[in-house]
Design a protein around this nucleic acid. Structure first.
Lengths: 214, 214
DNA sequence: CACCTAAATGGACACTCTGTCCACTAAGCT
DNA sequence: AGCTTAGTGGACAGAGTGTCCATTTAGGTG
């Protein structure tokens, strides 16, 4: 009606394309937006415009812009899922926690994680993605390590490994998300020392341990 | 032009109103939206529609919907800023941490905090508000308490009070924001025990403390 | 007490993003 | 070669942002 019998029946770029190619291009565009402008820039509109994919297709595959951003990020970031066990709990944990702090503080690597966890609070699809692809696997790895250390007799029998993880990695996440205090490698070292040795002074310690530690 | 010489020069509700009244009505509307529908419902558009205030006025006073929501929440929530010091560190901290967990888990009180901290990751105005009105004052209170306990000789001289706060309250925030494990009062109790006594077993403890704790 | 200025008002605007349509067209299996 | 499946551009209503107005009144001044 409008094209007045348009002489161009062939419009470039139209029609179906390979799903694999489209997915890759969408994730590529989402990752670029995420790294260059932050999570707020990852919208279905802008990703569709930046990739060659149409909005309809993106809506079909991802439940929310946040979930798309998370998949784009985790597809790029190396798995690096390893927790070496030399038998020296103190050294092993210190190494792991230091490199975690380095990951969060160097090259703005912490900003992406912080934004993803932040947006997870109001996007359950994103929360599921972050947990499944990131926090939970790492958490399980650490828990597994602490259980082995406990079986070796290095940790107290009644110590909960999941709690230990929270007191080490969770404390770091806290300084990342609620930055009322700085996040440094020295902080990581002090965390390890206190988690393993405790803050109570000799003398007061014995007084507590008979009453407190249920 | 359009009203064809409208016979009503007096349009109800127009003109300047008292700043105090307007502010109160805006905060009231924002709080209602926040509690009933969550942070996502607190938009300048909806707050303006719900209160009798105009959008222009709201934009002048608050930098972002998040900052408005935070102020509305903190204006309502009781300060309850107290950290009783009975001299019994273990009991005092346990009491505080238990009531903190209760605050986060009961009546959906944790959801609002989680959403505010979450949105803080992409809204610096909100982040400043949350820190100034909520996290920092509470943090300072706890730090102050631990410093007194340390001076009394109950805590090790080289223990960093800020770190201890992270390992107790930060660990709880972590389970709130990254819910890979449950947040319960029993968890709070275990956190206190481990923060004060440490996880290392007698025997291995001595081995570490000579090398590790810088 | 009348006046004046500072400030809140309703309304309109362009812009962006969401979420959902459609008819069209090509990919990849049968 | 044919057919079904699926990606395509484009359009759309709805909602929120951020910024304009000209209008109207509150609260301090002379």
């Amino acid at each position: 009606m409008m094209d007045e019998q348009s002489s161009a029946p062939v419009r470039a770029g139209r029609g179906r394309r390979s799903a694999a190619i489209v997915r890759a291009e969408v994730l590529e565009a989402a990752a670029t937006l995420l790294y260059e402008e932050g999570l707020g820039a990852v919208t279905f509109d802008r990703v569709a415009a930046k990739s060659r994919a149409s909005k309809t297709t993106i809506y079909k595959w991802w439940p929310s812009p946040g979930a798309l951003a998370a998949e784009a990020h985790f597809a790029r970031s190396e798995p690096e899922l390893q927790f070496p066990d030399t038998g020296d709990v103190y050294a092993d944990v210190q190494t792991q926690l230091r490199s975690f702090v380095r990951l969060l503080t160097q090259h703005g690597g912490g900003r992406v994680i912080a934004e993803l966890i932040g947006a997870s609070q109001t996007d359950s699809d994103l929360a599921a993605e972050v947990s499944a692809k990131y926090t939970l696997p790492r958490r399980l790895l650490a828990i597994d390590y602490f259980e082995r250390a406990r079986e070796r007799g290095q940790l107290d029998a009644h110590v909960d490994p999941t709690l230990l993880v929270d007191q080490l990695w969770g404390a770091c996440y806290n300084r990342l998300l609620v930055p009322d205090a700085p996040l440094t490698e020295a902080y990581a070292d002090a965390l390890v020392a206190n988690a393993l040795l405790g803050a109570a002074r000799t003398g007061y310690r014995e007084q507590i341990s008979t009453v407190g530690a249920n």
